[in-house]
Amino acid sequence: MNVYYEGVLASMGINILLALSAYAMLATDRLSLGNAGFMAIGAYVSSFLTVELGWNLYPALAAGACAAAVTGALVGLPVLRLQGIYFVMGTLAFGEVVRTFFQNFEPTGGAYGMRGMSGTSLEMIAAFVAVFVLLFLAFEVSRAGRAAYAVRDDDQAARSIGINVTGARLLALVSGALIAGIAGALFAHYALYIESGNFNFLVSANAVLFVILGGMQTFWGAVLGAVIFTLLPEALRFLADWRLSAYGALLVALMVLRPEGLLTRTFLIRLWRARSGRDAA
């Protein structure tokens, strides 16, 4: 395959994982702008293990993901006490703390960054995307998935019927951190070189943007958002210097014309019924 297309597909896969990580938290009504922090932890921990300690890629990747998940749990316990805009600010601060930590942490290269990682293939990224899409699909049709919708819609009513709202949010945050950690580890071993700037605030914001634009009602929205909004800037390359301005204008137009995002749950249900022939109307 052409190197350019392979690169676009690889970053699409990593973006899908990042969008799913943001979606996991948004699905319980918590907007995180710090997922790049979890991504950085996955990237640096796994890279340190493969480059400095000579680990195999897979155990290193698992260790990076676990480190991100554990950090998610430790950060989540205090941060989940915050609501609304304060939670957003708390996660934003967390992301910046992690970024500046790695900028100054000499054992992982500090400001020089890290190099020497390799081993991620496009097939590997695709396999991870497939695994997580299946996991989200299973979760969404499970009873726990239904409870997550209740938590997102109205947490006070959810508590009144015995749903453990804090537990659901903590689980969402930890799994979101885990997925971001995997995305980071895959990214590091694909890009071959990482520096703390790769994990800045814009990466977190983009992950949330994919979900909002794709649609927040189902995880398929996150997937679709990541696919389209990875391809769109590439498709706009003919505009040269105006590319990102046009991209921004398209995003604004989309939010005005379709605030619920591209994909809605009712649309999926209608599609499903039409296919199974129960209700074509």
């Binding site: 239904r146 209740a150 819609d153 109205d154 009513a157 959810a158 019927i161 749903i163």
Partner: peptide
């Protein structure tokens, strides 16, 4: 309990409201 100002879940159908509460 029920609430003075109705608090249903906009994402869920009528039946799903009952199913989600059964888990209690």
């Amino acid at each position: 309990r029920t609430f003075q100002n109705i608090r249903l879940f906009p994402s869920l159908t009528v039946l799903e409201h009952i199913l989600v509460a059964q888990a209690c």
